[in-house]
């Protein structure tokens, strides 16, 4: 179970205050809310990338004490970022993007590439030579590389068309069915969340300061 309890987090000022959220294994939780409401900040806290001002994050009963580099529970969580083009090293080919967390296990790279339907030709291209949809598929393969227990999808479909969105959601659902992973799906798209998520949590508009 991935749990955030009483999370207050932000950058200089708090963006979210006293927010609690739980993702059970096998469950898909949708997270919606207007721009600036703190969806991505909450996602970063739950992905152990951002230390909250207050509150705690628990993963399968273990309370997280260190964030970013020091997190010992790091590989139990996979993240899919909003902008695929910014979330890959521009020097890497898609093959290296997928292989990065695997530290060179080529067999697993091929397996993941098949899973997200990336051909050999695409795997040898660099990010600027493929479409956003193809790049996001490589990012999904990378996120699933270490078989995370929980997957956080931070507006992963924003840059994609309907068919790419459907393909990615299909892959995530299949992974969930196979591994009983929990998914936190963040999106502005209410129709997508209605069809995809078991339950949707809404963050309210940001406080005026």
């Amino acid at each position: 179970m991935l749990t955030g309890t009483g999370i207050t987090a932000g950058y200089r000022n708090p963006v979210i205050t006293d927010v609690s959220l739980t993702v059970h294994p096998g469950q898909t939780i949708g997270l919606a809310g207007p721009s600036g409401s703190g969806k991505s900040t909450l996602a970063r806290v739950l992905a152990l990338l951002h230390k909250p001002f207050a509150g705690s994050v628990t993963i399968d009963g273990e309370t997280v004490t260190r964030f970013r580099f020091g997190a010992t529970q790091r590989t139990r969580i996979g993240v899919l970022f909003q902008q695929p083009r910014l979330s890959v090293d521009p020097r890497f080919t898609l093959r290296r993007v997928i292989a990065e967390p695997l530290k060179g296990n080529q067999e697993r790279v091929t397996e993941l590439a098949d899973l997200v339907m990336l051909t050999d030709d695409l795997l040898d291209r660099r990010p600027h030579e493929v479409s956003d949809g193809q790049l996001q598929r490589a990012c999904l393969a990378r996120a699933l590389a270490l078989r995370p227990r929980y997957l956080i999808c931070d507006e992963m479909t924003t840059m994609l068309d309907a068919s790419s969105t459907a393909a990615l959601v299909g892959v995530i659902r299949a992974y969930q069915a196979e591994t009983d992973a929990g998914v936190l799906a963040i999106s502005h798209d209410d129709r997508l969340l209605t069809r995809w998520a078991d339950e949707t949590v809404r963050l309210s508009a940001p406080l005026r300061r």
Binding site: I77, G78, F81, S87, V88, E100
Partner: peptide
């Protein structure tokens, strides 16, 4: 940049992020 966050999520250490990215 998000690709550094992605490397951290993938389990990269501070040294690996520095030398690989």
């Amino acid at each position: 940049r998000p690709f550094i966050d992605a490397a951290i999520v993938g389990g990269a250490s501070r040294t690996r992020v520095l030398t690989r990215h």
